[in-house]
Design a protein around this nucleic acid. Sequence first.
DNA 1: TCTGGGGTCCTAGGACCC
DNA 2: TCTGGGGTCCTAGGACCC
Length: 422
Amino acid sequence: MTSLFLHADINNCYASIFRIFKPELNGVPLVVLSNNDGSIIARSQEAKDLGIQMGQPFFEAKPIIDKYQVRVYSSNYPLFHDMSTRFHRTLGTFSLHQEIYSIDEGFLDLGNFYQTNLQQYGADIKRTVWKWLGLPICVGIAPTKTLAKLANRIAKKSKKAQGVLVLNQPAHITAALKITDVGDVWGIGRQYATKLRNFGVLTAWDLANVNDAFAKKHLTIVGLRIVKELRGEACADLEIEPPAKKGICTRRSFGQPVMSLDLLQEAVATYMTRSAFKLRKQKSRCSQLSVFVETNPFNPNQAQYNNCKTIQLPVPTNSTLELVSYALTALKAIYREGYKYKKAGVLLDDISPATAMQGNIFDTIDRGKHLDLMQTLDLLSSKMGSGLVKVAKEGMEKSWKMRQDYSTPCYTTRLEDILVVR
DNA sequence: TCTGGGGTCCTAGGACCC
DNA sequence: TCTGGGGTCCTAGGACCC
């Protein structure tokens, strides 16, 4: 007996989260902006209905936003993350076999629940999340993860489904595949969709019926797995334990263009501090780092310059002090005067567990001391909030920091904000 | 004036070795 | 007179996800 997968996700996630704390937003169009307030990354249903596009630049959508008095909010990741944690915890009460797939999506492995009333079961989950958190979700249940995602998509659109769709009968699966555009299949993006349409593969049903060699040739073995999953052959299990990250990246656009090396150094030191913290959090070290800078590619009248510098470290490390020092060296190597920089970032690579420590006889750093210092730093950050203690290079003013003109309180995670709400 | 950030996996092609 | 073949490792680039 094969098993069944359940996929649940929050409808219009970020917009729905704001509505919990601002009930007056119910029924009115609202959008959430990307970091730096640059583009639109989430929309309520009303905003979608007005034709506002996902990823659309904010300034471009401004006329519609003004005309229809669409409410606008900057991203609030502490709030989103906290509500996401509660959502996944709630889902987890329904099954021990749970995958936290993304901030607003999760899978459960239902094993052999074929005897259960699955429609009822999905509806129970939906009702519980609504009751406990005030978040609207939809649920899809099917023999593979790909089909469960597809079922969920239909559940979102179909009035009849009422937010829960079970696909476990071959006839129902076929019908669902036939009404799904090939570009809406999980794993088929813009490029692949265009390619497939040129071959006359228009729906998920068409895709399920291509031959294996065709799938592998044009979509790689990843695409072949998608095809098999559409046919009901499970190729992917739940990822219950999230694997350690293989690369850790922190990059940001600046609120306004930056020209001086001093300010770029502040930004790079700040991003590296953040990356190093993430690295220690997953108990890893890295032995390669890269720093990159970019000008604004959307401004054709402006001189363009992009560059990236990668450094191999003599000994794997997770010390902020060491990593920041290397990062600033890398930055100096690629910095050129006279450009208006719009973005910078750091990437940690070549990651290994922090337990395996191989020495280097030329090592001149007292790693014991660094370790103690980093542990103290992380403890202080977790108790007092990050940013209280910092590396001097990070700077205090941060005139380059991203723009957030429409910010909201961290209702659930910041003491001052919680007190205000009460 | 204004266009996000953080990841994953796969493949092709070059370097290098025997 | 007239240039092999096979294996491995690494990297850049391209596709995808939310």
